[in-house]
Each structure stands twice: as C-alpha cells, then as structure tokens.
Nucleic acid binder design. Structure first.
Length: 455
RNA sequence: GUGGAUGUAGCUCAGCAGGUUAGAGCGCUGGAUUGUGGUUCCAGAGGUCGCCGGUUCGAACCCGGUCCUCCACCCCA
C-alpha cells in the first residue's frame, strides 16, 4: 500500500501522555467539586439527530454544526433541480440527518425529556465530554474540545445560581487560578430593550452592548443604527453606556432605569438575591455585575455567567446561565434549568501559560525494576506483586537490555526510583534501590523496600 | 465564511537577490563504560524542503492553486 501522510483534521489534536496527565489534573479537580455538590454523571452520544440540534444556538450556531452524511445512497430522492436552486438547506437536510453535538446543554435537555419518568427532580447532573464546532481554529479555539457541565434542572430557585457560582470558585481555587466572574441577566437586557421601545430588537441590542468594552460606546451606537434601531432609541441608551460603579451602585441605577419594565425589574431582583446568597458563602473571588455580558446562545432566559482568567487573555474559560424552557421544544414545558460549563481546553492553555501544573503531573511510574535476565525476573515478579498491592506504581523493564538503556528509560520517564536486583543482591535476598534524583543507592531487604516506598 | 502571516531533520530554527552533495543546536542510535542514568568525548543514522502545477538550462528560494498551523473579524469554551 502506498504510504500516506499521517494527519488529523483541522482543529483537532492528539493528547500525548504528558498532556493527558495534566488534562486529568483539570478533569479531576472539576469532577471532585461536582461530586461534593452531589451532581450525578451522565453521558450522551457524540451524535444527535439534527432536529435536536438545529435552531438552538442561533443562526450562527447552525452554521457551525458538523453534519454527518447519511449512510447508504444519500442522493436517492434528490433531484438535479434541488441542486440548481442553490437551496443548500434543502440539500443538506436531505443528505444529512445527524450531527455532532455542539454543546452538552441541549443534549441534556433532550435527555431529560426522554428520561423524565426515571429522573428525580430537581436533577443535578454533570457531564464531561467533547463537543464539536466547525469554527475556524485560532487561539483557544478548537474544533473538538471538552466541556465539563453541571446543571440543575427542575428548580427555579436562585439558590442554584449561587451554588454554581460557589462551585466555579472552588474549581478555580483548586487550580490556583485567579479569575473574574461576570454575572448578568437576560431579563435586564430584555428590560433595557423594552425601556427604549425596541422590545423586538433585543438580539441586536445585546450583541451590540456585548461589544461595549471592546469597541466603545460610539461604535456600538453606530452599529445599532446600522442594524436598524432608531437613533432616538439609541440615545436613550446613553445612561446605560455611562453606567459605572460597584455592584450596588449599578443595581441602584438599573432599579430606576428599568422601573417601567416588569421583566427588567425581575432581572434586577434576581441578581440582588444571587449576590446576597453568594456573599453568605464568603466567596473570595470577585463576582461582578456586567451588563455587557450577552452570550449568544439563544436558549438563556435568566442569569448568565461568564468566567475569565485574570492573567491570560483567552476568552471565557467557563460560562453558563438559566434556561427556562429548553425542554419545551422537546415536549416537556415548564421545566427550568440552570448550568455552567467549564472549558477544559482553555483552562489547560491558561494553566500551561502560567506554568501552574503541579510537578506530580509529570510522574508516572515510581519504581522501575531493572531486568537482568530470567533468574532475576523470577525473583522480582513476586516482589512487584507486593509493591503493586501496596499501591506503588511499579514496572519491570520487559527486555534484557543493557543497564545503560534501562537507566535511560527510567531517566527520560522521570521515574524517581530504580530497583536493581542482580545475582549479588539475590544471593543475600536483598535489592539495591537507587534514587534517580540524588544518585544515591542503598541495599535493602524486600520488606525494607516496601516500607520505604509506602512512606 | 472573510482577511493576514507561516510551513526546511523527531523538535527549535539557519539557508546569503534562483546555481553542484540543503546546514546548526537539541533529541535519537552506537562506542569510550558488556551491573549504573542525568555531565563529557568520539562516531553515525535521519530530509519527496507541506502537497500539486507553472516559469527557468537549473527552484527550498520566483508565480498560481491547495492543505495545515498561527493571528484577527464573526461568534464562542
């Protein structure tokens, strides 16, 4: 067979042992926090029916879905006229009925509806799985990446929002990462749109406001006018653009600015309650009200949360929010949920950038037994068994290779101890334990070896 | 999807305005040292110069296309 160039698709990556060990450090930290809060793990398939996925992530999201070509003759029933009409959607819906999941929240909503009779509500589930987006790769952006989701569904209580914020703090404490947590509420955004008389344009308004700190008030104003919001309405936004101060000051301002909007006031009250709960937890990290936080996902209806690293510019490393009726589209209305999602790959990039991975993520095997030959191996195997039963990560070099080679192997794998048991040692029922860091070596009985390594 | 930068050994990069056999450092393999790694010394292996096509007597170098990576926009974890 002709050899072909080894390659993987754009935006995907292999993870080598060193990377996996560091990635697991992140996953373990997150999983521990999820577990201590009583969340239960589920998994859902990598692919979903396109009907499940389409229309949940906005127009942009639909474009970023990876679609799976139907098996068999996917052209059957398709006419040349369909192609010439340039109706892409007609053709794609004909040849593709499934797609790769874009996030974990929508499949979760689907899961909840399908399993409603086995679930005890409020249901706290977590899910750590890859998702796929057909986006152009760039810094911190991959086509395949892991999300770590925790959601509470079947409860309207704002205690849930505050608990999730607490979990965010716990996770990033474990990872020794400084983060800023931004909080906003879709109802406030809706209220703003209502107050300026542009209730229908909420999507445009939120997307534009989202850019406030990036491009400035003047550009945002321009963009809004270009998107067809009347200049008069845009002018009404001036006090919002000018809003400054701490959380309380901002809430006071919004309280009066939104007083005419029922939904807006609801948003303000919700944020107030969340802040109150959060302050009871004495959470050190900064939780900040940020009305420029919009988040594009269509399904959010209440609180929206976003977390950024304070030291590395990479976009958000965790995000989430409340969705009042995601299950409704699947036939189960009136079930509200709220959740967060940690972006493991971006967190990895931040930790790598700051060199915050503990040294322990660099060690695999603790002890390597040198292989001198058959007689020595017979002496070693029972000993190995003992070490492993004592929980000591140990291995025997499988080949009778030159000692230099075996030592080199230990060295390049960062194995801290090498056990040398040759003819001389075996005669006295001893082994030589070499410390690869200090270079020191001592003779021990098997029991002494076991005792020393279990410390 | 749009725009920009890049692609030479396993890795990081040189490669003089197109000219014989494409280099370095690190890594790798072997030896000095057949029971002692990480230091040192010696030797060696390793390249369709991303891929396809074009210009030229001659292309790693110039031109076109394509793919990957990186960066920005859009959007997002």
């Amino acid at each position: 067979m002709a050899s072909q160039k080894a390659s993987i698709p754009k935006g995907t990556r292999d993870f080598s042992p060193g990377e996996m060990s560091r990635r697991n450090f992140i996953f373990n930290a997150i999983r521990e926090v999820f577990n201590t809060h009583g969340f239960l793990q589920i998994e859902t398939p990598a692919m979903e029916n396109l009907s499940t996925l389409l229309g949940k992530y906005g127009e942009e999201g639909d474009k970023l879905l990876f679609r799976i070509l139907n098996s068999g003759n996917f052209l059957r029933g398709l006419f040349l006229s369909d192609l010439s009409e340039r109706e892409i959607s007609k053709v794609t819906s004909h040849i593709s009925k499934r797609g790769l999941r874009y996030d974990l929240t929508v499949p979760f909503a689907r899961y909840v509806v399908q399993h409603r009779n086995e679930i005890n509500f409020p249901f706290r589930r977590y899910q750590i799985q890859p998702v796929w987006r057909a986006d152009n790769p760039q810094k911190g952006r991959y086509r395949e990446f892991y999300q770590c989701d925790a959601d509470i569904i079947g409860s309207n209580s704002l205690l849930n929002e505050s608990e999730l914020i607490g979990m965010i703090v716990e996770v990033f404490d474990k990872l020794s990462l400084s983060v800023s947590i931004k909080l906003n509420n879709r109802k406030i955004l809706a209220g703003i749109a209502e107050v300026i008389g542009e209730t229908e344009r909420i999507a445009d308004i939120t997307v534009a406001i989202d850019k406030l700190d990036k491009i400035g008030a003047e550009k945002v104003r321009q963009e809004l006018v270009e998107r067809g919001v009347s200049e008069q309405s845009v002018n009404l936004l001036d006090p919002v653009f000018a809003m400054r101060g701490n959380n309380t000051e901002k809430l006071n301002f919004l309280g009066s600015f939104l007083s005419a909007s029922k939904i807006g006031m609801e948003g303000v009250e919700e944020i107030k309650s969340i802040f109150e709960y959060v302050s009871l937890e004495k959470i050190r990290s900064k939780v900040e009200l940020d009305i420029t936080l919009a988040r594009g996902l269509d399904y959010y209806t209440g609180a929206i949360i976003e977390v950024k690293s304070e030291d590395v510019e990479i976009g958000s490393i965790c995000g989430g929010g409340r969705y009042d009726d995601l299950t409704g589209v699947f036939g189960l209305p009136g079930v509200s949920g709220v959740g967060i999602s940690f972006g493991a790959d971006r967190i990895y990039d931040v930790l790598a950038n700051l060199d915050l991975f503990p040294a322990s993520t660099n060690i695999s095997t603790q002890v390597l037994f040198v292989n001198f030959g058959d007689a020595e191996v017979r002496f070693i195997i029972p000993l190995l068994r003992q070490l492993r039963e004592a929980g000591i990560r140990s291995e025997l070099y499988p080949e009778v290779a030159r000692m230099k080679k075996q030592m080199n192997y230990a060295n390049s794998l960062n194995i801290p101890y090498v056990v040398i048991a040759g003819e001389n040692e075996i005669r006295e029922n001893k082994v030589s334990l070499k410390n690869m860091v200090t270079g020191e070596q001592e003779q021990l009985s098997p029991d002494e070896l076991l005792a020393l390594l279990t410390d």
